[in-house]
Amino acid sequence: MASVSIDNPMTDAEQIGSKPPRLVPNYWPFVLPALLVVSAVIVFPWLFTLWMSLNSWTLGQPRTFIGFANYVRLVQDMRFWESLWHTTTYTALSVVLPLFFGTLAALVFDAKFPFRGFLRGVFVMPMMATPVAVALVWTMMFHPQLGVLNYLLSLVGIGPQEWIYNQSAVIPSLVIVETWQWTPLVMLIVLGGLAAVPREPYESAEIDGANAWQKFRYLTMPMIAPFLMIAVIIRSIDAIKSFDIIYAMTQGGPGTASETINIYLYNTAFAYYDIGYGSAMAVVFFLIIIALSFVLLMVRQRANWSDMEDR
């Protein structure tokens, strides 16, 4: 971050042996404040968490360095493995469903029809709505006796469900909320991809006699594939970290049936104040997310390469 004065014209003699002054403006001062803030609120917590994970410390009690004991404890913790499984199913469902509905919606909103802009605006609203507020209303709608959802089901002849109050139904029920809220994001990403798709191939495919399905399968799909991949990556990262909806609706319950890693982490650190163990969990959780993103990015790279070769 060397800042060299740029106002000082130098003679040839002075220049020898010293670094030549820069004409290009020094942009580091623009970045510096953000760098400080990011170091303080982002980088410092990373390092601190890493350090805390090597200690045994419950708030209010003395701290002792215990090396990797927290990690060993984590591996042997059945509740952690369960929460990992909950996280996996929750995330998988919360990626696949929004991806399906979002792509469908994007294909519709890519076409022209009356009130398109308005309807798209309405469609985007769930992802902007405050998750806690959304969760609260869904909780009322899921109510087994008074909820509107069971009433709607009864209209089509389906018996009442227990939704989030049932151990085996709770995760799918939460995924409904997650899907409702985050399908619009997938729609926007795919819509952005569709906007970048050129028209000419469709015209030539039309001349070549392709039907609608063939055009979708052989033109649209490959061309928006990179964007679908982006949607998968973003959705995965968001879903695996999902907190607000789960915490506000079930706090991980009933029992621990919907306790994901993030919820368990919260309980450990801020309900039991077991800071050391919570930090270790945070580190492992973070590594899981990084690994997942890395794998997905690799897949995406490969997808892009094959695209390049085709062109």
Partner: peptide, 25 residues
């Protein structure tokens, strides 16, 4: 113009050697 560094040699505008003077001056 002074938008690009010189790697060697010199530029004079009038009597003034400008190759290390920023564009604005």
């Amino acid at each position: 113009a002074g938008l690009e560094e010189v790697s060697g040699g010199e530029i004079r505008i009038g009597p003034r050697e400008v190759s290390h003077i920023p564009a604005r001056d």
